[in-house]
Amino acid sequence: MPFFVATIENKPGTEAARARAQEAHREYLRAQAHRILIGGAVLDDAETAPHGSVYVFEAETARDAQRFTDEDPLTVAGTRSAITIRPWRQAVFNRDYVLGTPEAGAPFPVPVRD
């Protein structure tokens, strides 16, 4: 199954909405944990509050990857200012170089040259 990376920025001024949606967000992540390789909050410069988050996860298609972020309770609550989702390929995992192995997924497509 393909991997995707989602980078998410929090919308300023939504701290109360974030607090209200936090438990539902945690439940959502627990339910989705089987498809998440790694994920968590990106902290502000003071390391005291979340600025956004990053998730690397499996999804069948780009549309399925979009649903992963769209259905997150924090997104539904309107607390995100930007979400970017891109296909992702593993090169290193758990301190091991894995590029080209079945665990890393299919290799990058090679462009066809004329």
Rank of each mutant, 00 (worst) to 15 (best):
E23I: 11
R20L: 12
Y28H: 08
A77C: 02
E47W: 07
D64I: 06
A62E: 13
V76Q: 08
A17P: 00
G39Q: 01
Q32L: 06
F93G: 09
T69D: 11
R89Y: 12
R95D: 15
Q66D: 10
E60I: 00
V42N: 14
A21S: 12
R26Y: 13
F93A: 14
P102N: 06
A59N: 04
P73C: 08
E60C: 01
A77F: 03
T79G: 03
V42M: 13
A46Q: 15
A21M: 01
E58S: 12
P73K: 05
D44W: 07
V98A: 03
G52I: 04
R63W: 06
A49N: 11
Q90F: 14
G13L: 01
V92K: 04
A91F: 06
L99G: 03
L43C: 01
T61L: 03
E27K: 14
F57C: 06
H34E: 14
G100C: 08
T69G: 03
D64L: 02
G78T: 06
V76L: 09
V76C: 04
E60D: 14
A59C: 09
T75V: 05
R26Q: 15
S81A: 11
V42P: 00
A82R: 12
T48P: 12
D70I: 00
V76I: 12
A16T: 13
H25G: 07
P87N: 09
A19G: 06
T14D: 04
P102F: 01
R67W: 07
G39T: 01
F57M: 00
L74N: 13
L37W: 08
A46H: 10
P50T: 07
V76F: 04
D45P: 11
F93D: 10
F93P: 00
R35H: 03
V56M: 07
E23N: 10
R89Q: 08
Q32H: 10
W88M: 02
T75N: 15
E15Y: 05
P50G: 03
L74Q: 09
L29Y: 03
I83S: 04
Y55F: 15
E47F: 08
E58V: 08
G13D: 07
V54R: 10
A19D: 14
G100R: 05
R26N: 12
T79F: 01
L99C: 09
D45E: 13
Q22T: 11
A17M: 08
